[in-house]
Amino acid sequence: MQDIWAFLGPAIVMFIIRNRIFSFCFLALYAALFIQMFYQASLIHHVPEACGGKHDPLGYMALFFVLSVVCLAVYPFAALAKFIITAVASKE
């Protein structure tokens, strides 16, 4: 049950941040992960001994989750900086 957060975490971060370019980058990462998982599934289907190893896509899922959490942690600071810049620019 706890594994679902690794898959849904980046999507939740996309909905929180709501930036089009950021969302497209994460969508590209999801597509790359899907292709990697499809490749692994077809490889296991043809060669059952190929399970795991260096082509295991779940290792990338952890990296993807950590990347999304880091982006979520940086987001408030970027939003605050943008707010301060616009506040200073509007006073001039």
Results as ranks from 00 to 15, higher is better:
Phe38Cys: 13
Met37Cys: 06
Leu67Val: 13
Met1Ser: 10
Ala28His: 01
Met14Ala: 03
Pro76Ser: 06
Trp5His: 13
Leu67Gly: 09
Cys25Lys: 07
Ile12Cys: 08
Leu33His: 11
Ile85Ser: 15
Glu49Trp: 03
Phe38Ile: 14
Phe64Thr: 03
Ala28Phe: 05
Pro10Trp: 03
Phe24Asp: 03
Ser90Cys: 10
Leu27Asn: 02
Cys71Trp: 10
Ser68Met: 07
Thr86Met: 11
Leu72Trp: 09
His45Ile: 11
Phe34Ala: 06
Phe34Asn: 04
Tyr30Met: 01
Ile4Ser: 04
Ile35Cys: 10
Val13Glu: 01
Val70Met: 02
Leu72Gly: 11
Pro57Leu: 08
Val70Asn: 05
Ala11Asp: 10
His55Phe: 15
Arg18Asp: 05
Met14Cys: 01
Leu43Ile: 06
Met37Leu: 08
Leu27Met: 13
Lys91Phe: 08
Val88Ala: 07
Phe77Ile: 09
Asp3Trp: 01
Asp56His: 08
Cys71Ser: 10
Ile84Ser: 07
Val70His: 02
Leu58Trp: 09
Ala11Glu: 12
Ala28Val: 04
Ala32Cys: 10
Ile12His: 04
Ala11Val: 14
Asp3Gln: 04
Ala41Lys: 01
Ala81Asn: 06
Met61Tyr: 00
Ala32Gln: 07
Ile84Phe: 11
Trp5Asn: 11
Gly53Met: 06
Ala11Asn: 13
Val66Glu: 06
Lys82Phe: 14
Pro48Cys: 04
Ile84Met: 07
Leu63Cys: 08
Glu92Thr: 14
Ile4Ala: 09
Cys71Met: 13
Val88Met: 08
Tyr75Gln: 02
Leu27Phe: 08
Val66Gly: 11
Val47Phe: 03
Phe83Asp: 14
Cys51Asp: 15
His55Arg: 15
Val74Asp: 02
Ile85Met: 15
Lys82Arg: 15
Phe7Asn: 05
Glu49Ser: 09
Leu80Trp: 04
Leu33Pro: 09
Lys82Thr: 14
